[in-house]
Design a protein around this nucleic acid. Structure first.
Lengths: 205, 205
DNA sequence: CCTACCGATCGGTAGG
DNA sequence: CCTACCGATCGGTAGG
């Protein structure tokens, strides 16, 4: 229909490859994602798949990029309307918990899984994963720092400590859901986040 | 030297295969552990390696068993002398933190990595990993329950909440050390564990 | 986007 | 424990 049909087709094919790749890699890992399997599932040839990216590593980086877009929409965006500081910190955690509960990725948090798969290696994929966690930690630290400034967390609180502890709760939830399939874990995580973010000030002070 | 030299040799060969397997799998994962690589590194043939176990899955299960022995010696045993309840809970956490700091396994906690690698699959390997975490959680819960009974933690504390939160701190530490190579993380984890286990009772009450 | 192919490696087996 | 081998699959390339 379009006069540049081949270009539009190429873009939509690329998008289809990436969506399928994200689904596979979420369960099997970024290494378990193979060109041959992708080709079979998509009804394409291997070279047809690979032609869009050039190499497996380039495909993996594109998959991380695509997963990052999903994460941004599902976790970062919902917290934007919240008031900076403690309320936004709580909103970020709630968005993360909800993102796991709703199984946005079938294998749990895409980046937690990728981090464990690549933390013992070197290269561009590992670096891309680390950069995403750096950005996430920085975001948590920033909001925690604002909460301290606003007096919503005790004045001697280290924002990095808060970010570290919240990350732990989120990782424990991911673990409980994926390995133990424990449906009570989400509420446990919510309770723990609430307790950690409760001001040391007496209510109403 | 021994009259049953071939039997003793077989056992020591098996032990050598498992030790090398643990080292490889810690960094590359239990699937990244291949018979061919093992054979090359040990100066054996592939069939010589495989003959000790029968299949790759049986090798993976034996590797988990061997890693479990190391974990028991490094994390469970050091906490045995501690008084049951809060002191032993603290000792278990400190042993775990030290076990990561000392890089007992080059790729961080063997079981956390294995859990993420296999939580999206089915089978005996996945089941063995889950069983180890069940045992670990039960242990933390038991000591937390004793701490509540002894009045060392608030009376309305859910021991499973404590175990969940401590697991989170340990996983956050593993992540910080492996992905971010952040040497400050161990002390951050110690601080957070101490804060979580601090009694709600005023000191000396 | 395809077919046809490359060398390397995978887990595993036969036979000794 | 070995050699020699199996079919399958890996990432990737040549040539169109």
């Amino acid at each position: 229909m379009s006069p540049r049909r081949s270009v539009a087709d190429a873009l939509s094919t690329r998008a289809a490859i990436l969506d399928r790749s994200v689904a596979i890699a979420s369960l099997e890992g970024l290494e378990g994602l193979t060109i041959g399997r992708l080709a079979t599932e998509l009804g394409m040839s291997k070279s047809g798949v690979l032609g869009h990216f050039g190499s497996k590593e380039a495909l993996q980086l594109a998959v991380l990029e695509r997963a990052g877009e999903v994460f941004r929409a599902e976790v970062w965006e919902p917290a934007v309307p919240a008031t900076p500081g403690l309320p936004r910190l709580a909103a970020l955690c709630e968005a993360w918990i909800s993102y796991l509960e709703r199984e946005v990725f079938p294998g749990g948090c895409f980046f937690v899984a990728a981090a464990h798969e690549f933390d013992g290696r070197e290269g561009a994929v590992r670096d891309a994963i680390e950069a995403r966690f750096d950005a996430w930690s920085a975001r948590l630290c920033k909001e925690a720092g604002r909460a301290v400034e606003a007096g919503d967390l005790p004045g001697d609180t280290d924002p990095a400590d808060v970010a570290f502890e919240l990350m732990g709760l989120l990782m424990a939830l991911n673990h409980a859901l994926q390995l133990h399939r424990d449906p009570r874990a989400a509420d446990r995580a919510r309770r723990a986040v609430r307790a950690r973010l409760r001001s040391a000030r007496p209510p109403g002070a």
